[in-house]
Structures are given as structure tokens and as C-alpha cells.
């Protein structure tokens, strides 16, 4: 999806925590930063028919990012900051490209939140992760429908079980 544009592909500053559960949440927040950036482009290139889907998805990702940041801060973990820019996996200059980017970002969000789910040691982190994973799966399916991709759903969002 949208990968940070600055420097190498190593962890963004601040440094990634060593605890596995914190690290997964840190990664998820970093992914959400990129998704929120990417939805700006999706919004710019989508048709008006997708306005509601764009705004609902974006609002959901903002909420998840803020919640993730909040939880990291509670554990004295410095959350990741947004990159200065993000590299897109392909050129986005029309509604089809926008929808493809949205699918890709939702798939990446699903992977990140499933990792949170698997690494979490607290039940309410798992609740957050299941909520996020489900939202990502639903949004990805809606964007596939926009693209006319069949089927719109996958058996294992965020994984390849």
C-alpha cells in the first residue's frame, strides 16, 4: 500500500517497541497513518457515488488510529508519527485506481490488525483488533464491489489460512 517515502524501509522514528504486543499496535498505528494519507488520494479521484464510502472508511481509520495512539501512550510507548510522504504501489489518477488503492489499503490494515489480535495479551486489545479487522474486511468488500471484482469477499481477511 502506501509505504513511507522517507529514508529506508526500517521502522519510522520513534523506535518500534520491543514488546511484541506493543510492537504490533505500533505497526498498526503506522499503517493507519498511511491509510489515512492514502484516503486523501482516494477521495480526490473517486466518483461522487463513492463519497459516503470514502468518508465512512476514513472516519473509521481515524478512530482506530486515535485509539491505537491512546493505548500506546497509556503504556508509555511513543506512537509512530506520520511519514512526510508515502510511496504508492501504483499510479492513482482515476476512480479505478482510487478504488484499487482503497482495496489494497484495507487489505494491509486487515493484516496489521490481525497481527495485533495475535500478539495482544489483553482482552480489550483483541476487541479493538477484531473490530478493526472486521471493518477492514467490510470496507475492502465494498471497494471490490465498486470495482466490479467478484467475489467481493475473501475467506480469511488479514491472513492466508
Amino acid at each position: 500500500m502506501t509505504s513511507p517515502d522517507t529514508g529506508s524501509s526500517t521502522a519510522p522514528s520513534p523506535s518500534r517497541p520491543s514488546d511484541a504486543a506493543d510492537a504490533a499496535l505500533f505497526d498498526a498505528v503506522a499503517v493507519e497513518h498511511g491509510v489515512i494519507y492514502g484516503y486523501g488520494l482516494v477521495s480526490a479521484h473517486s466518483t461522487p457515488d463513492s463519497n459516503q464510502l470514502v468518508s465512512n472508511s476514513l472516519a473509521g481509520h481515524r478512530e482506530l488510529r486515535e485509539e491505537g495512539i491512546h493505548r500506546l501512550a497509556e503504556r508509555k510507548v511513543t506512537p509512530p508519527i506520520p511519514a512526510l510522504g508515502y510511496q504508492l504501489p501504483f499510479v492513482v489518477d482515476d476512480p479505478t485506481g482510487a478504488a484499487k488503492l482503497a482495496v489494497r489499503m484495507e487489505e494491509d490494515a486487515a493484516v496489521a490488525w490481525r497481527a495485533v489480535l495475535e500478539q495482544a495479551t489483553a482482552g480489550d486489545d483483541r476487541e479493538l483488533a477484531v473490530t478493526a479487522l472486521t471493518r477492514a474486511a467490510v470496507s475492502a468488500a465494498r471497494w471490490r464491489a465498486v470495482l466490479g471484482v467478484e467475489p467481493t469477499t475473501v475467506a480469511f481477511p488479514g491472513g492466508n489460512d
Partner: peptide, 11 residues
């Protein structure tokens, strides 16, 4: 197991 069940729920 948590991850698998989460993906199933999402699907």
C-alpha cells in the same frame, strides 16, 4: 487461534 477466529468473524 485469536487471529484465525478474528478473520473468520470478519469474513
Amino acid at each position: 487461534r485469536a487471529g484465525l477466529l478474528g478473520s473468520i468473524a470478519a469474513a
